[in-house]
């Protein structure tokens, strides 16, 4: 169950311009966190900025109890967070429904098409698509997938504006995964969009796709998946106040299995939704 905890900051590094990784000593969070879940973090001690900031869990080491978050500085909250080197951080989490994989999906209440259990499903490729900072939570998913039989079928597609903005490429490669990259300006890898790489990959037999990144990218991913009739999941972003399902700030339009559309809360019903259920 999610907790309100003060965790110790064990390190702060910057893997790319304007991108920071905070390492948190948080054994209880490490124990229960699932890929795709997020932490709701209080950036200031006082009342300005007032609200917490949602940041995905980027990596977990259950042996050492260390949890990492990776974030881009875009405003006051993330700027304050980037300056933190040590001391305690006020964290609410882990929150939300993450990516479904392996046995874990059986504990879900809302059925999402069956992914990677390595036994009954179609045994095609499993593709992870990350755009910009969206690569951060996908790395935690890779950590978990690395330990499954599905690992050899996993392909990683990462995109960014330019080479210096590419994230988690070495980390994913170090886990033994095949990584393909795309940049908008052609400074590394394929010159174009990461979704162009996905379109190409979908010509091969594909079992499941996981995506996280900017909204236009996710929208394009969902269109490609529906055309190719491949199931998958996307992680959405909405402005959040409570983070626990109480305030109804963070809703997304979702199509129920019956075809009916309604509002679901990104903080508890998501942030990961089935690609087929999102209404853009």
């Amino acid at each position: 169950m999610s907790q309100l905890v003060q965790v110790e900051i064990a390190g702060n590094s910057s893997p790319a311009p304007n991108i920071y990784v905070l390492e948190l000593f948080a054994p209880t969070l490490a124990e229960i966190a699932q890929p795709g879940q997020f932490l709701h973090i209080r950036c200031a001690q006082g009342i300005d900025p007032l609200l917490r900031r949602p940041i995905s869990i980027h990596a977990v080491n259950r042996e050492t109890g260390l949890v990492r978050i990776m974030f881009q500085v875009v405003g006051r909250g993330t700027e304050m967070l980037a300056r933190r080197q040590d001391g305690l951080l006020d964290v609410l989490g882990p929150l939300g429904r993450g990516f479904t994989w392996g046995q874990d999906r059986q504990s879900r209440t809302n059925p999402i098409p069956a992914p990677v259990d390595g036994s009954t499903t179609n045994q095609g490729n499993i593709i992870l698509v990350g755009g910009g900072i969206g690569a951060a939570p996908l790395f935690f998913l890779l950590q978990e997938l690395a330990a499954t039989q599905a690992a050899p079928r996993v392909k990683v597609l990462l995109g960014a504006r330019s080479a210096d903005q590419l994230l988690t490429v070495e980390l994913a490669a170090a886990l033994g995964f095949k990584v393909q990259i795309a940049t908008d300006d052609g400074s590394a890898g394929f010159h174009g969009l990461v979704t162009d790489l996905l379109a190409e990959e979908l010509r091969q037999k594909t079992e499941y796709v996981y995506a996280c990144g900017p909204t236009p990218m996710l929208k394009a991913v969902c269109t490609l998946l529906s055309q190719a009739k491949v199931p998958g999941e996307v992680s959405l972003e909405e402005r959040m106040a409570c983070g626990v399902g109480a305030c109804l700030s963070c809703v997304c339009r979702v199509r129920e299995p019956g075809g009916e559309e309604n509002h679901q809360r990104a903080c508890v019903d998501g942030p990961v939704f089935s690609a087929a259920e999102v209404v853009w």
Partner: peptide, 10 residues
């Protein structure tokens, strides 16, 4: 169903 998003602003 309520309003569209964004629903909040800090």
């Amino acid at each position: 169903a309520g309003n569209s998003t964004p629903r909040i602003a800090e």
